[in-house]
């Protein structure tokens, strides 16, 4: 019964992300179109371009139709995987082609950054809670503020300098040693290396992931440190923890049960953190020359390619909605109190 209930819950939640996606699409659409001025002119800059070329660009971007038509046309296209074509060199390439190669790189980076941030946050938060009121607790609190205010490119560069230049143990950019060839299946290099049994590629791709992953992970761990600490302090003062103690249950087990309970609210934070993570990923990618969506957007901004920017942003909107669905499902799986 529970299984059927969960399947139903997932379907309902999946249907519920449709309005979320529509709203996000609408917001991005409105912001990109309603803002003053001609977007083509804005991205092309103040340089004078021949009127016929401007017309051509507007046509390619679908900007020559009434707004309401544009809104539905573009939505229809996006739902069919058509994000338009690039407006700058190389001109006329479907944006989705870029997304297909760039997105797995961003996904791989965010997965690692996410994992690092959760692990670091859980450990530091738990230690702070178990030693609450002590110097360690204060230290963790300062850590969470400092981590939160670290500027990603700056912190990334310091890691590059220490581990890449001074110690020379880790690469400072890219996804994999270019001398190693790897057959891509999913586009996630670590996964692909494992699937194809390519050990050198596996080692190389992991080495390339450590610094950018840690940069993202540490910066985003601060919020978890603080939340885990506060939840854990709350949970540790709860009656059922006292009950466990009164039953002679060993301490390490009680700590584990407390951590499980403290983790439930953390899941809610994860959805929001993932969005911040994606923002941070753009800066991380730029710092580490990581060929993902972030560097793609930045490249296209330099080329003033309006269609590509719009496509990438809309794609992110879809992705954020899917992540929030996944977070909800995980929450429902872990907390028996959720009714579905």
């Amino acid at each position: 019964m529970a299984k059927k209930g969960l399947g139903y819950y997932i379907v309902v939640r999946a249907l519920m992300i449709i309005p979320t996606i529509l709203i996000l699409y609408t917001i991005v659409f409105i912001l990109l179109r309603i803002l003053p001025g001609n977007p083509i002119l804005a991205v092309v800059g103040t340089r004078n371009i021949p009127p016929e070329q401007l017309k051509h660009l507007e046509h390619l971007a679908g900007l020559d139709k009434p707004l309401i038509i544009q809104y539905f046309d573009y939505l229809w296209n996006v739902l069919h995987g058509n994000f338009g074509v690039t407006l700058a060199s190389p001109m006329g390439v479907p944006v989705i082609n870029y997304i297909a190669t760039r997105f797995p790189a961003t996904l791989e980076l965010t997965i690692w950054g996410f994992t690092f941030s959760v692990i670091i946050g859980l450990v530091t938060g738990m230690i702070a809670a178990l030693k609450r009121g002590s110097k360690i607790d204060t230290g963790m609190r300062i850590y969470s503020i400092v981590a939160y205010t670290l500027f990603i490119p700056w912190f990334g560069m310091i890691l590059q300098y220490v581990f890449g230049v001074i110690l020379g143990v880790l690469p400072t950019g890219g996804r994999i040693d270019p001398r190693i060839s790897l057959q891509t299946i999913t586009g996630l290099y670590v996964l692909d290396s494992i699937l194809t049994g390519n050990i050198p590629a596996l080692i190389s791709s992991i080495k390339h992931l450590i610094l950018p992953g840690l940069t993202l992970g540490i910066v985003l761990s601060g919020a978890y440190t603080r939340l885990v600490r506060n939840n854990m302090v709350d949970v540790l003062s709860m009656d059922f923890i006292r009950s466990y103690k009164a039953r002679g249950i060993p301490r390490y087990k009680i700590t584990w049960y407390a951590l499980k309970n403290a983790f439930i609210p953390v899941i809610t934070l994860m959805g929001l953190q993932f969005a911040i993570l994606l923002g941070g990923a753009i800066l991380t990618e730029t710092t580490f020359s990581w060929p993902g969506m972030g560097t793609f957007i930045v490249d296209r901004i330099e080329y003033r390619d309006y269609n590509s920017i719009q496509g990438a942003i809309i794609f992110f909107a879809f992705f954020v909605a899917v992540i929030s669905l996944i977070v909800d499902v995980i929450y429902a799986l872990l907390d028996p109190r959720i009714k579905y």
Partner: peptide, 9 residues
């Protein structure tokens, strides 16, 4: 919805 979207992006 806006809040759930990555601020920097």
């Amino acid at each position: 919805s806006m809040y759930s979207f990555p601020a920097l992006i």
